[in-house]
Write a protein that binds this DNA or RNA. Structure first.
Lengths: 150, 150
DNA sequence: CTAGTTGCAAACGGTTTGCACGAGC
DNA sequence: GCTCGTGCAAACCGTTTGCAACTAG
């Protein structure tokens, strides 16, 4: 999340033939530096703090550029709620159905499992997403965990 | 997919306090017996063949009942395209970005990986979905596989 | 008979798009 | 200065909902 991200962001846009506008830089800085898997709305509200006139359309257009450049992934764990993830290596997402947070988790087995599936089904894998839904540690400790809809 | 599914479907509805209408039975028979992970649209078109006056609203309402009963899972691998899966045990979905088909794949490692994540993060898992995106065997053999957007 | 269900059409919410003004390079 | 990017508002599209007519039990 430090400023040294900026030069490489600018380079990324220019190299792909895009102009490095203040909006694009701000959006990229935020999304690439975030670990909370924000929605477009969340990005919009965040960027608005420093760029009050930004529009949701610009958020979506910039996110699309980052997606096409392979810098972020799209998560669709809930229907009607697309979230974004700057971590593009194989990893799992633990979605808490109570508080909505998504935590990352990685394990060396994961790439092996991907290879195995790929070999077994003769399938060329270009992307993966291991989703786990349930109740996170914090929410379980607060006494929740019973009345959820999986 | 045989007719012996029907009595248990009727029982399921009645036990949950729902009426077993012809529409609900037809929709359930199709969704529970399908291995192609249909969208609501697909279900609608299919049911329309035998029940021409059925509405999309009824499809959605019936699917919700099946979901709440834990008989089917919801898949959101593409944004804006919810599909349904009558296989509720932990398994992987291989989505072909070329032809759109989704194949199932299971491996004994999967439940172990879920347990490991659960233990490592102190997370109570109630559902899982392992997504792999790429190119399926058939499409790869037809010479595709290069110009895809992951 | 009567509460629950259906089909219709309108509402909804997230995402995309057309367009005229404005800004990067 | 020429082109690309932005903000706005309208369009889109899958899903949900309100309602009057209908039907399962």
């Amino acid at each position: 999340m430090e400023d040294d991200l900026e030069p490489s962001i600018i380079k990324t846009f220019r190299n792909s033939g895009y102009k490095a506008t203040p909006q694009r830089i701000a959006i990229s800085r935020y999304v690439l530096g975030s670990d909370e898997h924000p929605t477009a709305q969340k990005v919009y509200l965040e960027i608005k703090k420093t760029h009050p006139t930004v529009s949701l359309a610009t958020i979506y257009r910039t996110i699309k550029i980052l997606k096409d450049a392979g810098l972020i992934l799209e998560l669709n764990m809930h229907q009607g709620e697309t979230r974004f993830d700057p971590v593009t290596e194989p990893h799992a997402h633990l979605l808490c159905l109570r508080c909505g947070r998504i935590d990352d988790w990685t394990d060396p087995i994961m790439p092996k499992l991907i290879d195995k599936a790929s070999a077994a089904e003769n399938f060329i894998v270009t992307g993966s997403n291991f989703e786990l839904k349930g109740i996170c540690d914090g929410c379980a400790k607060m006494g929740y965990g019973a009345d959820i809809t999986p």
